[in-house]
Amino acid sequence: MTVPVNDKGGMGFDPGRRRWLAEGLRTLAGVALVTGLLGVYQRQARALPATAIRPPGASTDEADFQSACIRCGLCVRDCPYDTLRLARPGEEVALGTPYFVARDIPCEMCDDIPCVKACPTGALDRGLTQIEEARMGLAVLIDQEACIAFQGLRCEVCFNICPVRGKAISLNKQHNPRSGKHAFFIPVVHSHDCTGCGKCEKACILEEAAIKVLPIALAKGMLGKHYRLGWEQKAQAGESLVTPDLPHHYNLPEGMQYEHGGRGLIFGEPSPAPSPANPLETLNGGGGNP
């Protein structure tokens, strides 16, 4: 494009220059509009649906992942189980990026992690060499009302299918108060070991899975950083950090004692001094007894 030179040294009205300016501004305005809309759209496109799980090694920061992923689909091609797919236009996941839905096809956690090796851009981090260290998401037993383990029925399918067996999901035995003589075998997920592969969600026998893999940021809570757990501090220090560490007094009938964590209820041994009627006396009296 040529810029017409004004004969009058740029002082007067020049229709050529005016047209050139007008067209330039029109183009600029159009491009600015498109860029603005695109900028807004890409912000929205970071909203990854909770059911869409990124491949192993993907950054948990969706903005980071989307600016590193080149959308070539080489990870999809090298996935031997057809787990991964590229988001198509019209889907809720950012266009062309790889993801999987655990309930459809979960990650089989290949030892050699071919999807990560295939990635040319490092959007899937090649630093990930042990698939057990992948953190694609976190399984959460999200509906205790529907999970049949909470009805006292034996299922444990999620526990048994878990590739990090016994570590990522353990069974917690609890008393079943309904029957009074049976146990609940409650599946408990441990974030320390769960890779978020989604095998449990896929295997859940319910119509709609009671255990689901969620993005870690959604699934994890976090204790306030200032919080300290007294018993851990005590174990670390070797002694109680708040004095005095008083032994607990059980108010029991005469001739009975109770030893927590030891012999339990004890009969027929000389009782310690009975607790004072006023509990404040014990508290104010310091650690002098029994």
Binding site: L38, G39, Y41, Q42, A63, S67, R71, L95, G96
Partner: peptide, 15 residues
């Protein structure tokens, strides 16, 4: 390219 530089990632690839 400006979008990519200013934190927009591969915005163009969305469209």
């Amino acid at each position: 390219l400006l979008l990519a530089t200013t934190g927009g990632g591969l915005a163009w690839e969305l469209v």
